[in-house]
């Protein structure tokens, strides 16, 4: 029987992630989805940029490209267009994707290039020690927002939708089953699939924001996640989402013409 175990580079384990880091969970969910898709190890390419999340491909025993900060999507575009038969998955983080790589992100969405992008949004720059990112919620303390973040955040899933991606969803590291399913649906859909996985960073985010333990961070995500349908209902009733809460669910699923799709030979 094929097992997820075949996909890990066991000689590199345990990985560098801190205790309780959500990235490992997202790797699990991704590989679970890959298993369900029945992809071939030698035909799957994992690509990442720089940051904690981007170290993930190093633990997966496929061909993988650990690139420069923010450019993962551009590298992935090259790989995919040179060999469209590859199954390409991009791991990225919130800083990597939305700050330094924001331009590549919206353009990859616009091109609707056939790949799956999984963004581990931990709301912080973890690798460099906890600086504020474009996804740090208002009021949160980071080393570069010592008096609380004041800038509005990026809603990445919505951004992907608006930029033209065929699939966009958001779940958290708590919702493992839903996340796995969303990743699988994303992999099935031709075109650009974006899955934002909110993850916990107890070391750099939780520690400074009264969420000291991993479990408390996960509880925070569980309690503040609002299903998209519920949010829509609330909106219809004229109730607003209280600050700090965020929506989860499937934002868009459509079948616009996409780039880099291999037509099935019949």
């Amino acid at each position: 029987m094929k097992s997820v175990e075949d996909w890990y580079r066991h000689d590199r384990m345990p990985h560098i992630f801190c205790t309780g880091c959500g990235n490992g969970t997202v790797i699990n969910c991704t590989l679970e989805a890959v298993m369900q898709m029945g992809w071939d190890i030698d035909n799957t390419i994992f690509i990442s940029g720089i940051g904690c999340s981007s170290r993930s491909p190093g633990y997966i025993t496929t061909d993988s490209l650990h690139t420069t900060h923010g450019r993962a999507l551009a590298f992935a575009t090259g790989v995919k267009l040179a060999k469209p038969e590859f199954d390409v998955v991009v791991f990225t983080g919130d800083g990597d994707l939305s700050a330094i790589g924001g331009n590549h992100f919206i353009h990859a969405c616009r091109r609707n290039i056939n790949m799956t992008v999984i963004c581990m949004n931990n709301m912080i720059y973890g690798m460099t020690g906890g600086q504020g990112s474009p996804c740090t919620p208002a009021g949160a303390i980071s080393t570069t927002t010592p008096y609380g973040a004041t800038e509005p955040v990026f809603d990445l899933a919505r951004l992907a939708e608006a930029s033209g991606a065929n699939y966009s969803a958001r779940w958290t590291a708590y919702h493992v089953k839903e996340l796995t399913k969303a990743i699988k649906v994303g992999m099935e859909i031709p075109g650009f699939s974006f899955i934002e996985a909110m993850t916990q960073c107890p070391t750099s985010y939780g520690r400074r924001n009264k969420l000291r333990t991993t479990t408390s961070m996960l509880e925070y995500m569980r309690d503040n996640a609002v299903l998209l349908n519920k949010a829509k209902r609330m909106e219809a009733e004229g109730r607003e989402l209280s600050p700090g809460r965020f929506t989860v669910g499937e934002f868009v699923k459509r079948f616009r013409p996409a780039l880099g799709v291999v037509k099935d030979e019949e």
Binding site: Y8, H15, F17, N23, G24, T25, N28, A173, Y174, T180
Partner: peptide, 13 residues
Amino acid sequence: GVCQLICPDQAIK
């Protein structure tokens, strides 16, 4: 299998 999926360290099997 929720424990295995959520375990960030791939330690549960």
